[in-house]
Write a protein that binds this DNA or RNA. Structure first.
Lengths: 332, 332
DNA sequence: CTGAAAGCGCTAACAG
DNA sequence: CTGTTAGCGCTTTCAG
């Protein structure tokens, strides 16, 4: 068991050739005669040699690593992005260096760490300060924001039509006779949460509904549950509850059905956002808005890879359409 | 906007010192006079200089990157590991290079990729071939397996007491008068799933219960749902359903309650495994087994970091106790 | 097509 | 304490 990590020099010696020959054989653009290639590959196999990606990176100037920053939300959101991103990237030979950001906070530290590792690009679903973004731009590291917005040019964006889809929810509910509604907001600092709220308000106005009651549920189950409990005396006046995410909606349903004995959609209609796994469970059958997260993140990585090749591309903003998933909790 | 990436040489020149002085100031063990340190830090700040981690890695022989391989299961499992691992590692200044393995398949490719990036250690929750493990050992990359088993020495393991906890479920159910049960198995190839099955069987034997009926639910909601439907005519004979994970248990409940009109635990008791987020929802109130996943993964990263420092440590197998979470679906 | 040699940006002896 | 020098393992001119 020799077990030292073998280098291209070891392979070269074993094959009786120069080190640069080995390098060429292992590089896509490298040219080598068939015999040479054969000899080298044989030697490499014998030593179980694979080029050291770190050394390659240093020399080549690209790491083939994509940095990804995700927000650790109510642990429902990111399995999807992770699969989409890693799946898509592995096909093109990139790896993912992962950073997790806390919900409220900015992902600035994460950016710093990724920058130190010279990732080729950053895909981010977390809030970032202008300054962090400026650093990326200064170091010419492409950055694409998913469901976030920055005013900087040079930054690509992929978002879903959060505003419009929430607006459509209001119109839909109105069309089914709903008048008085309660909107469960997400955190003030969350861009998506705000858009959904604004969009819903606008929809209410357009539909001639009264301004919705509003409560802050912080995107959590407890937030939804407790808000519903708090409104228990006024619940008779409310025709529907719309929630900025499914988790709060589920919390509200649990309170309404299991604590207050109400029935859904009979007594109250409920609409969520995100189409989380729970939404389709029999006891909930939650009508919700599905963002094409998978497609969004595929697109985001595509943009990133593209901009690595061609840094001067004009920056792109992509808006992808969400889909209404009508289930039993509210129909129109 | 100069925007080239600055190196320690740029800082050195600006500060009028040697490059190695810069290196020292940025290394924890480096010694430098206060004035020098000050001068250099000032220059570094001006250029927004941070050492290039890739170059550091190449030179230092350690990347400060931990490879992590997780299985993309029914998207419920890994938010926890990710937080535990990344949280723990970031404190010690390591980053996580992430690989996602498909449920059935081996994580061998993932290992290869991580090895090429010279990760300092690998934490893996996926199945691996002997050969992949051998490669890690040959390259002296510590590897710790979470809820998996390998016969190789030099490999650390962190597992929960899957066998015993399932065994205790049988004993508990028996103590509450349950006799005839159905066990929802996970995939044949899954080590944890098998242990839970075997443990449960053993428990049944010890408790004097008849051998449980068995069905394969593949760890999915549909698997649980359809199995329950399939047994609908014989459901009267069954006192309890035990499932190797919560997802299948939830599927079964949905079939029993919403399709067959049964009540739980009145007509059938249900026990799951994992304490997934859904388990605590009002309509389910699922009695389940909670593995201390967070603690397990913290321990796993600790072992990994430890073995990086001291490669010749004897290999460690840690078994962590699971916790019974009694909810309404089955009580004893 | 092939080998020699100069970096990539940093760390780590080694002398002063 | 500080500067000089030699690598880390690879890619890439540049000659042969």
């Amino acid at each position: 068991m020799t077990s030292r990590r073998h280098t291209s020099y070891d392979v070269a010696k074993l094959a009786g050739v120069s080190q640069s020959a080995v390098s060429r054989v292992f590089s896509p653009s490298g040219s080598a005669s068939p015999e040479m290639r054969d000899k080298i590959l044989r030697a490499a196999k014998k030593l179980n040699y694979k080029p050291n990606a770190i050394a390659q990176s240093l020399s080549y100037g690209r790491t083939r690593i994509i940095g990804m920053i995700i927000t650790h939300f109510s642990n429902q959101i990111y399995p999807v992005p992770l699969n989409a991103v890693t799946g898509n990237l592995m096909e093109s030979g990139e790896s993912v260096l992962l950073q997790i950001a806390e919900p409220g906070a900015l992902g600035d530290d994460a950016v710093q760490r990724l920058l130190r590792y010279r990732v080729d690009a950053i895909v981010c679903t977390s809030d970032l300060s202008k300054q962090a973004i400026a650093h990326c731009i200064a170091e010419k590291v492409p950055i694409v924001l998913v469901n976030r917005k920055s005013s900087s040019p040079h930054v690509d964006h992929v978002v879903s039509d959060n505003f419009e889809s929430s607006q459509r929810v209001a119109l839909g509910l109105a069309s089914s006779g709903v008048v008085k509604t309660l909107f469960l907001k997400g955190p003030e600092s969350n861009w998506v949460a705000q858009l959904r709220y604004k969009g819903y308000q606008k929809g209410c106005r357009e539909a001639g509904m009264p301004r919705p009651l509003t409560a802050d549920g912080q995107f959590t189950y407890e937030g939804g549950y407790e808000t519903a409990m708090k409104y228990s005396d006024r619940i008779g006046e409310i025709d529907a509850i719309v929630s900025a995410n499914d988790t709060m909606a589920i919390g509200a349903i649990d309170a309404l059905v299991y604590e207050m004995g109400l029935s859904i959609p009979g007594d109250v209609r409920i609409v969520g956002h995100n189409d989380s796994p729970e939404a389709r469970l029999k006891p909930y059958q939650l009508t919700t808005i599905r963002q094409p997260m998978d497609a969004m993140l595929k697109k985001a990585t595509e943009l990133a890879l593209q901009r690595i090749e061609n840094p001067d591309l004009p920056s792109t903003d992509i808006i992808m359409a969400s889909e209404l998933v009508l289930r039993k909790s509210a129909v129109w």
